[in-house]
Design a binder for these strands. Structure first.
Lengths: 149, 149
DNA sequence: TGTTATTAATTGTTAAATAATGTATTGACA
DNA sequence: TGTCAATACATTATTTAACAATTAATAACA
């Protein structure tokens, strides 16, 4: 659906304004698709993000700050996300012996199994990209990188 | 900053995956910039969005459902946002005489004045777009539209 | 006109974003 | 080397938002 129809706005003051609004709206669409997708596995997109970071470190532990700096949303509360994952037995948390300020967070077998299960269906989640061909995907990636500067 | 550096990930499984993550990350960057910008005026980006919709209707009232369908995030709670704006005397809310289920929401003089004040500095908010030229902005807009299909 | 379906909005609940606080470690300097 | 300030790390508190469930009013129709 065209942006103008989706938010029932007939015109924009400038291409800049349309771009900003388009980006926010598009990412909100993708975010709600992702929420729906991950719900069947009992986790949120942010929790999935944390699990992936932990798998990247496995079998080594990760500190909360390491997780935080790798997260997509730097401002979100890593402590609370880890707590939620721990309640679901998807991660383990233990005091770090070298530095008592830190905690060692490690993904569990259950956590790895869940990620493996998700990956199988993950291709579905990327179906949003079907509408674009390879050249278009590449240029979108490049343009987004450039926009952030 | 390049996406890989920003989230400390060396590679992605596919261009699709990189695209999805890039989009989420980029929109999160823009969202936090906007939060920062609007904070000086005591409102959130979503509240700004509601005020703009109300200005579009002014001097006619708008119902909560009309506001909701024009919002960028359809699932967010328009009732509560309006309540927050009412506490700041930026909108008025009154029972609709024709249909007692509905409420008439109208932007106040104070609300219009705040929007006018914001618009003056609004150009600053679009500085993110400075990194792209006109052609690039247009193609980014087109690609985002296409992605949502 | 009584019953059910639909529409409108609010309230409740859960989760996430941001701010503030607490605690451990490091480093500077007497 | 003992003390204090600065820093780093994480947690807890607060605000805000997302989504679900509920309440109330109107419309539709037998």
């Amino acid at each position: 659906m065209k942006l103008e129809d989706a938010i029932k706005q007939t015109s924009f003051k400038s291409e800049d304004e349309r771009l900003i609004i388009n980006l926010i709206y598009t990412s909100s669409c993708i975010a709600s698709e992702q929420n729906r997708f991950f719900k069947q596995f009992g986790i949120s997109p942010q929790q999935y993000n944390v699990l992936r970071i932990l798998r990247g470190q496995y079998p080594n532990p990760a500190s909360v700050s390491l997780i935080q700096e790798r997260m997509l949303d730097k401002m979100s509360n890593a402590s609370r996300l880890i707590e939620k994952l721990k309640l679901k037995i998807l991660v383990k948390r233990s005091e770090c012996s070298k530095d008592r300020r830190q905690v060692d967070v490690i993904i569990t077998e259950e956590g790895l199994a869940l990620l493996a299960e998700i990956d199988l269906e993950n291709i579905e989640m990327h179906k949003a990209c079907k509408a674009l061909n390879t050249i278009e995907k590449e240029s979108l990636n490049i343009l987004l990188d450039k926009l952030r500067n």
